[in-house]
Design a protein around this nucleic acid. Structure first.
Lengths: 161, 161
DNA sequence: GATGAAATAGCTACAGA
DNA sequence: TCTGTAGCTATTTCATC
């Protein structure tokens, strides 16, 4: 389940995480391999979980969700049992795009997508309202998004001779 | 360039942002449309920018980048001319996955992927070191990632009869 | 890992509502 | 203008070397 990735794998991954619509033939050409070889590697990368998902990235503005909110959450007690409810509500809420447990002053950082501030207010009430383990939360509004992605930097050794 | 999205479009988008390897035929079946109709809609959604990208999401841990860092950056002057350099370095740095200009105490929030703390230290030096407009930056380490994605919540009206 | 055949998906054209 | 049917092209998939 932990296959070592060679330069071919890395080259393939680096293409796919930029654009997974490129054909296996084109990838094969780019990394100097045959198409079936590329296909077998992609299948292994999928099955082993190196490729976690293959998705379309949508424009939130065009879908009526122009707001991105960044929320630092402070809890009284970080103990798993005391935060289970919070974590479950976060997991269940589609508007919460990302959630990190973090070091430092705050305990959690959330990235949230919302249509209106009223919607966010209702959401924050749902997430934090009745939870007496939530000490406080501090919301920042994203004025603009300078960069948005989940791409993992890959050191590009030359792929092949 | 701003086509109104109907229930069919939304249903298609909701499938694709979860898994864009689903065939047009399967989508057609799911949303009760013919495959060519689905294809035409997908093409329009791509061209109009509603679909911003189609990508593979990789597991950073398996690629030797187990660290995620969340960095709040405070600048002296938010004026575009004074922050141009910073924004340019952020854009050029693959390790910076996300960057938001935000309201509140800090001015920017960065999500960064790194292999080691030493690498991050070098990176932060590159990003902020020589810039006298950067007043300070505060780094949090992500202890765990409870949720990770860029999916936009879509209200699922019934797709079609 | 490469080659070639079968299955499948994607694309285009045309007809109809 | 949009959908659906039909037919073609290209890609993926699988067996073999």
């Amino acid at each position: 389940m932990l296959p070592t990735l060679d330069a071919f794998d890395l080259a393939i991954l680096d293409i796919l995480q930029r654009d997974n619509t490129v054909s296996q033939r084109a990838i094969a050409l780019a990394v100097h391999l045959s198409a079936p070889a590329v296909q077998r590697r992609i299948r292994r990368l999928r099955e082993s979980g190196v490729i976690r998902a293959e998705v379309a990235v949508l424009d939130a503005n065009r879908l009526g969700r122009p707001l991105t909110l960044l929320v630092e959450v402070h809890v009284h007690d970080e103990h798993p049992l005391r935060t289970a409810g919070l974590r479950q509500r976060i997991a269940a809420e589609p508007a919460v795009q990302q959630c990190y447990a973090i070091t430092g002053e705050a305990d959690y950082l959330l990235v949230i997508s919302a249509a209106t501030m009223a919607d966010y207010q209702a959401l924050s009430e749902r997430l934090f309202g009745g939870d007496d383990n939530v000490r406080r939360f501090r919301t920042s509004v994203a004025l603009s998004c300078l960069k948005s992605g989940l791409q993992v930097p890959i050191e590009r050794d030359a792929a092949a001779p």
